[in-house]
Computed example of a mutant assay.
Amino acid sequence: MHTMWKGTISFGLVNIPVKMHAATENKDVKLRQLHKECQSPIKYERVCPVCDREVKNDEIVKAYEYAKNKFVVLDEEELQALKKEQEDKAVEIVDFVQLEEIDPIYFEKSYYLSPNEGGGKAYGLLRAALMDTGKIGIAKMIIRSKEQLAVIRVYQNTLVVETIHYPDEVRKVQDVPNVPEQAEPEKKELETAKMLIDQLTTEFDPEKYKDEYRTALLDLIEEKKNKEQVVTGEKQPVPDNVTNLMDALQASLDRAKQDKPKPKQPKRKTKTNTGEKKKKVAK
């Protein structure tokens, strides 16, 4: 399992070197976009609208837009220094609370924790203490350049980090439109609804639930593939260096011919009659 992060979890004077691994994965079926005409994948480019050209990675800087079209540029060195300063700190569990006290709306993403070298004993100690007390730890940590509020708890004999939202990241329920005011329902309707809930009540078994849309989509893809209902995108034309070189040489030659000054024609000598010259001399 890929290690995403290495660090130290501490509570009191106990330090636990740990590794962090993603506990979940996205199983969405990713569909590509093709050009209908030639079945080639669509290419997306980063283009500067002012310079009207594609921008390379080394030409991009990060900035914060504090007002419309007003930015504070942040150097990569400055960001890395802040990140390193926070990452070097141990992740300290600051509080212990009951899991039931945290509403599920706060939970974001789950990560497994495994002990790093020499951390097995302290890892087992924290796990046992959390299991015996039924508590969970609240801590802060840096994940992907963001300071996260996190919960540390036990899941099937393994320590798990659950990142949770800060209170100001959870939108106010008062802003939700068209929520009806609390009203007393009809007694008969309420009793019927409660009976229906009782009939559908069972123990939670996650294996019972399947992504039916994903399964149907994969079946459709496999069916079309077996029927050879497939397309092949046209290959992008590769520049022919030889042809380009010949074109360039020919263009240069043509230009040279046009620019070359025409050679001067030699002056033609006029023929002189020898007999007439002699007569003149004799006179």
Rank of each mutant, 00 (worst) to 15 (best):
Q80L: 10
P17D: 00
Y44T: 01
Q80P: 02
M131H: 10
V73K: 02
Y44Q: 08
K280D: 05
I221D: 00
I138Q: 02
K194R: 10
C38W: 14
K278S: 09
I197L: 15
R46I: 15
E276P: 01
G119T: 01
L34A: 11
Y166W: 15
Q250F: 14
V94M: 14
L126C: 05
P206M: 03
V230N: 08
A23K: 00
K208I: 03
S252T: 00
V14C: 09
I105R: 00
K267T: 01
P263E: 02
T133G: 02
D259C: 05
E92T: 15
D211N: 15
V173F: 07
R268H: 02
K264Q: 11
F204G: 07
W5D: 09
V170E: 09
D259P: 07
K84D: 13
K135W: 06
L190G: 01
K262W: 09
R53I: 00
H21L: 12
K43W: 11
D240V: 04
E77S: 13
H2D: 04
E162C: 03
L126V: 05
Y66V: 03
L79A: 01
Y166A: 09
V230T: 12
E212V: 11
K83G: 07
L13T: 10
F204T: 00
C48W: 09
T24H: 09
K257P: 10
E87L: 14
D28R: 15
R127N: 10
K70R: 10
I105Y: 01
A122T: 04
I164V: 14
Q236M: 11
F204L: 12
Y64I: 04
R32W: 13
T232V: 04
L113Y: 08
L218E: 14
L74V: 13
A22W: 03
N178C: 09
E87G: 08
A193C: 13
M4A: 07
E100H: 10
